[in-house]
Design a protein around this nucleic acid. Structure first.
Lengths: 145, 145
DNA sequence: GCAAAAGCTTGAGGTTGTCAACGATCGATA
DNA sequence: TATCGATCGTTGACAACCTCAAGCTTTTGC
């Protein structure tokens, strides 16, 4: 009778915690989509922009976005056509091109961050102690080893 | 000199916590994309499948996926062509169609959940106390009011 | 009853994403 | 140093995604 997972409040705290986190992911994804459309960006474009805190080889951008290299080519083509990014040849490897934000790109990225970089409303309700607890737990979850 | 946000360890715990959460979101999104492609699903299809724990009007599915109604039509068309879902007319409102998983759909959804429904490796490192802390904090963040 | 609104679909048009193939460049090895 | 294999970015073909405007059916409110 206890072979399968209990769905009642006897559910393991770990499972419930993860389920709650996934709920928050969903909310955050919707926020992201709305923010992107408000700024006239397709989701993929907005995602790329957010990754570009620092110049990145096309290569690496593809792996961060979990998509094919050839996909990034078109993506960057369109961002470049709107003068949001530029391609910069790498001085060390002539095969590589770095994607760099233009001023306009940096600006748009900042406006995107204003919308999705800020925590959701429920977050503000936490006490300082809870904020620290959450920070410490998350540090541990994301620790390299 | 302290006008702009400090990036050092003087950053407010709340800000750092949120940044860490966003990092986890990114990791989870990549897991999701990889899982979907392993199961021969496009990301949007996988997302729709995951939402269908219970039958849902097209309408509601669209709002959960944060996209246009007309988008869901095509999405469900393709899932239906693969016998993963079926359209069921609502008995109460003849405009409404409910999307229901078929057996195959339920199966595929379960396999998807095996991959993204489980917490990431770092999660296992937490102690029972930390799991409970995380659960309680997340409950508070997601509380309705 | 009738007008307004809601639910779903269609069609047009641009974007995303994958795959296979290609030219250019780098690195290692002989 | 010459060459082979791998890597980086691009291109072209093709399917899926996504939005918008327009349309049909059904429901709701007046």
């Amino acid at each position: 009778m206890a072979t399968t997972a209990d769905r009642s409040n006897t559910a393991a705290p770990a499972d419930e915690a993860w389920t709650l986190l996934r709920t928050l992911f969903g909310q955050q994804r919707r926020r992201f989509l709305i923010a992107a459309s408000e700024l006239d960006l397709h989701p993929a474009q907005a995602g790329a922009l957010l990754q570009l805190a620092t110049p990145l080889p096309m290569n690496e951008l593809a792996s961060l976005l979990a998509c094919d290299n050839s996909n990034v080519t078109g993506l960057i083509d369109r961002l470049e056509a709107r003068d949001l990014v530029a391609r910069q040849p790498s001085p060390y490897d002539r095969r590589v091109k770095h994607v760099v934000l233009t001023d306009a790109g940096r600006d748009l990225r900042a406006r995107m961050l204003e919308r999705v970089g800020q925590p959701p409303p429920g977050f503000e309700r936490l006490t300082p102690v809870e904020h620290r607890q959450l920070r410490d737990v998350m540090r541990k979850v994301l620790a390299d080893e």
